[in-house]
C-alpha cells in the first residue's frame, strides 16, 4: 500500500525512466488498408547506424510493418549528402529518413530558402536527432512544418534538465562552457539563465575563445575548465553543443580532475566519456518515435504537415556510478527511485 503510494508519486516527477510512455497511442491503425508491399525508406545517416536505427527497426518489427530500408552513410561529409539526394530523386522511395541537423538541412533546406532543384520536396521526409528544428530553421513551427516533412527532436527542455540537476544536489552556481558560434548553444545558455532566475542559482557562463577562423580550439579546454573551477561551481553543464560533443572526453576528464560533477543533455557523454549524470533522450526511443511518424505517413496516410514535430515526453535519468565513486558524490535516495544506474 505504501509502496503503491510511492509509485503513484513518480509520474509527478517530470523525469522518469519509462521509455515508451511518451508515444501517442495509435488509434487509426485498424482503419488503414493492409500493407501490400514493403515500405521503401531511403535512410541518410550522418555517422553510420546508431541506436536510433535500432529503435526504428524494432518498432517496425513489433508493429509487423514490412520495410525495405536503403541505408546511406554520409560519414560526416556534407558533400556526400548531395549525392544521396540525387540518388533518392532517381529511385523515388516512399519516404526519406534523415539523421541529424546537417543531413536534414541538406535534404530539405531552410524553410525560407527551398530550392526544388537542390532539395527534396515531393517525397515525404522524417528527420530524427535534430537538436533544434526551429533554431536551425528547418521548420518555422513545431506544430506543423507546413511542408512535406515532420520529425523528432531529442533535446530535453532546459528547465527539465535544471530540475534534474537540482534533484541530485542543491546548487548555488552552475557552470556552462559552450561555443558562442553555435546558435543552439547560445539558445540553451539563455534558457539556462532563465531557469537560474526561477531556481535561484548563478550561471557561470564561459564561452570558448575562438581562433582566427572563428572556431574554438580543443587545446583551450583545460584552461576553460580551470577558469570555471576557480569559481567553485556545483555542476558543469554540458549542453547539446558540437564543440563540447566532439571534445567530450577532454571536457569530462578535466572536470573530473577538478572534482566538478558534470551533467549532460546527451547520452553519448555518459556512454563514451566521463560525465557523472544526465537527463537524456534514449536513442532507441527517438528511433521508435520517428518510426511511428513514418507509419502515420505511409500507412495511416496522414499528411506530414499534419503531424507535429515532437520531442520525447519521458527521458532517462542516467547516473554513472563509477564517476560518482571517484568523486565520492553519490546520488540521493530520491533520485535512485527513478534513475538508471550505469557503470
Amino acid at each position: 500500500m505504501i509502496a503503491c503510494g510511492f509509485r503513484r508519486c513518480l509520474p509527478l516527477l517530470a523525469i522518469t525512466i519509462t521509455l515508451w510512455g511518451g508515444l501517442v497511442a495509435d488509434v487509426t491503425a485498424d482503419m488503414s488498408e493492409p500493407q501490400t508491399r514493403p515500405l521503401r525508406i531511403f535512410m541518410i545517416l550522418w555517422r553510420g547506424e546508431t541506436n536510433v536505427e535500432v529503435g526504428l527497426r524494432d518498432y517496425f518489427n513489433s508493429e509487423g510493418i514490412k520495410t525495405d530500408l536503403i541505408i546511406r552513410n554520409a560519414e560526416r561529409d556534407k558533400n556526400k549528402i548531395l549525392e544521396f539526394i540525387q540518388e533518392a530523386k532517381r529511385i523515388k522511395p516512399d519516404l526519406i529518413y534523415t539523421w541529424g541537423t546537417p543531413v536534414t538541412l541538406g535534404v530539405v533546406g531552410q524553410f525560407d530558402a527551398i530550392d526544388p532543384q537542390q532539395h527534396i520536396t515531393d517525397i515525404p521526409v522524417v528527420f530524427a536527432m535534430v537538436t533544434s528544428p526551429e533554431g536551425s530553421q528547418i521548420v518555422e513551427s513545431l506544430a506543423s512544418s507546413g511542408r512535406n516533412i515532420t520529425g523528432v527532436s531529442h533535446v530535453v527542455p532546459v528547465e527539465t534538465q535544471v530540475k534534474a540537476m537540482l534533484a541530485y544536489r542543491k546548487a548555488k552556481r552552475i557552470a556552462v562552457i559552450y561555443n558562442p558560434m553555435e546558435n543552439n548553444s547560445v539558445l540553451s545558455v539563455r534558457a539556462l539563465r532563465r531557469s537560474a532566475e526561477v531556481h535561484g542559482f548563478e550561471v557561470i557562463d564561459q564561452p570558448a575563445e575562438l581562433d582566427e577562423s572563428g572556431r574554438p580550439r580543443a587545446e583551450d579546454i583545460p584552461d576553460l575548465i580551470d577558469k570555471v573551477a576557480a569559481r567553485e561551481p556545483q555542476f558543469l553543464y554540458l549542453g547539446p553543443d558540437s564543440f563540447v560533443g566532439v571534445n567530450r572526453k577532454t571536457f569530462t576528464h578535466e572536470a573530473k580532475v577538478h572534482r566538478i560533477p558534470t551533467f549532460t543533455a546527451t547520452e553519448v557523454q555518459l556512454r563514451d566519456a566521463e560525465a557523472l549524470f544526465g537527463l537524456v533522450s534514449r536513442y532507441d526511443s527517438v528511433g521508435r518515435l520517428a518510426a511511428h511518424k513514418i507509419k502515420q505517413i505511409l500507412i495511416d496516410k496522414i499528411p506530414p504537415q499534419d503531424i507535429p514535430i515532437e520531442t520525447l515526453r519521458r527521458f532517462s535519468y542516467i547516473v554513472k556510478m563509477s564517476i560518482a565513486k571517484e568523486l565520492g558524490f553519490y546520488p540521493p535516495m530520491k533520485v535512485l527511485k527513478y534513475a538508471e544506474i550505469v557503470e
Partner: peptide, 14 residues
C-alpha cells in the same frame, strides 16, 4: 548499486 552506507544522501528527504 555501490553507495557506501556512510555516504547515503537524502535520507531525511526520503
Amino acid at each position: 548499486i555501490g553507495i557506501p552506507y556512510d555516504d547515503l544522501v537524502g535520507m531525511e528527504e526520503l
